[in-house]
Nucleic acid binder design. Sequence first.
DNA 1: TTGCGTGCAAAGGTTTTGCATGGCA
DNA 2: TGCCATGCAAAACCTTTGCACGCAA
Lengths: 137, 137
Amino acid sequence: MKSRSKYKTRQREILVEYLKSVAGEHITASDVFNYFKEQGATIGQSTIYRQLESLVDDGIINKYIIDANSPACFEYVDHDSHKDGKVCYHCKCEKCGCLIHLKCDELSGTLDHLYAEHRFKLDPKRTVFYGVCEKCI
Amino acid sequence: MKSRSKYKTRQREILVEYLKSVAGEHITASDVFNYFKEQGATIGQSTIYRQLESLVDDGIINKYIIDANSPACFEYVDHDSHKDGKVCYHCKCEKCGCLIHLKCDELSGTLDHLYAEHRFKLDPKRTVFYGVCEKCI
DNA sequence: TTGCGTGCAAAGGTTTTGCATGGCA
DNA sequence: TGCCATGCAAAACCTTTGCACGCAA
């Protein structure tokens, strides 16, 4: 948590509102830009990048790096949907490029094992599992 | 494995030689470029990018995406260290940046589970597990 | 000889930055 | 009023692409 916003601005508010409204989806910076452009409520792209970074630092959204030359994805952190205690993992298909949200108890167990036995605390927010999806196998 | 090199060129040979000589280190495309520039044995940067991609496809090197706005890293795959038949997983510490080579049967079991139950065939060559290492916890 | 590999330069796309202006507290 | 946030444009950055030439098989 490097930075923390000090002012409550219109731009930040409608940005969070938008991200909340599409919770569960993966949104890129340009998605955000285009959305507000269509709405007529333009936000400068530098503001979008700066606010997204700030929101990540504040834990309000997550940032996913899918691929080196794809834009970063952002996703609203729905604290309610974590009530089942299950973490959401991200699987990226190398062939079709689709992104899969996965909740898997066995995988969660493995993370515990990694921590207990190998002293490595895996960060599911940051880790993307690459492979081949159902449709492309 | 999308592409596979058909010709054996001087550029590919010295590139592999170099990567082998720094096995275990993380090398970026520009590291490679600068290295050969210093050596006087210039290789065009597009050739470097194309060959690196090709070597990844051929399983000779691995590619790691460390961060959205950092250049991709490449690392020579030491096949000799695979003689026990166990797959080597890569864990990257978000704090100190160290890379851990991990052989873990439980993790391998989880990959089987992912495939059997979720129809997702995880690619250990392509996947980097991000988290916090022992020293940084 | 065939067609893949190379290299240069230019383009591509995402993200960052400089600086003057605007707006929150 | 004092700063932080914004927005525009331009830069920075890594990577890819087009095209003509070179070279391996």
